[in-house]
Amino acid sequence: MTISQLSHIAMEMGLILLSNGAETYRVEESMHRICIALGAREAEIFCVPTTIIISITMDDIETLTLTRRIHTRVTDLTKVDELNHLSRQICYEAISYDDLLSEIKRINNAPAYPYLLQVLAFAFIAQMYTLFFGGNFLDSCIGFIIGIGTKLLMDVMIRLETNIFFINMVGGFIAATVAVIASGLGLTTHMNTIIIGSIMTLVPGLVITNAIRDIIAGDYLAGLTKGIEALLIAAAIAAGVAVPLSLLRPFWGG
């Protein structure tokens, strides 16, 4: 395998891993292992949540350095799982360049769950958490409606490449507005429960987990970046919820 082919494979896998929600240390470790297994003499990888830099030495003179920038990040843990599996497979057996490339392409283009199911799942989360925090069945149905609305609006905003804090702020805004209106119409007396249950859908669980795991693994730069991202998302949700609660105060009589 030539050095450009090797760097292409490693970079593609690293990119898909990093942009789909793998921890930074996992990305660095799998890229390093792939490079060594495919015949590089030395491989240095530097990886932060938005950038990958890789530098490979194959023979004595030839050195190649590549940089890639990551702009959009989504959460797709199936891809992380399968690529993790593939990187282990590369270490154990020899696979040709074309096979590897087609395998990576297959993993990257694998279909997600149908969109309707995703929306329903998102709404179901809001419903379950409303019950979890002590609401009754009617409250949970209001939570379900909020969940559908939040998911649809968030997807439109993601397609327009809005920044993540504004998206979460709008999510909190919708949750609080619908809950306040429902409470104003006399449908429910558990307004707080509905709002808490609905904003649990926006909680950045994966970001928190990755921040903690990165810091344990010694990647302080990536860990701190993600920790601050999680804190800012939480602040954005709170700010979004605060707006209707303050403005629509006559409705809920607080």
Partner: peptide
């Protein structure tokens, strides 16, 4: 809720 989250995270 966790089951639904697993679907959203595409596991």
């Amino acid at each position: 809720a966790s089951y639904a989250f697993a679907i959203v995270f595409n596991i």
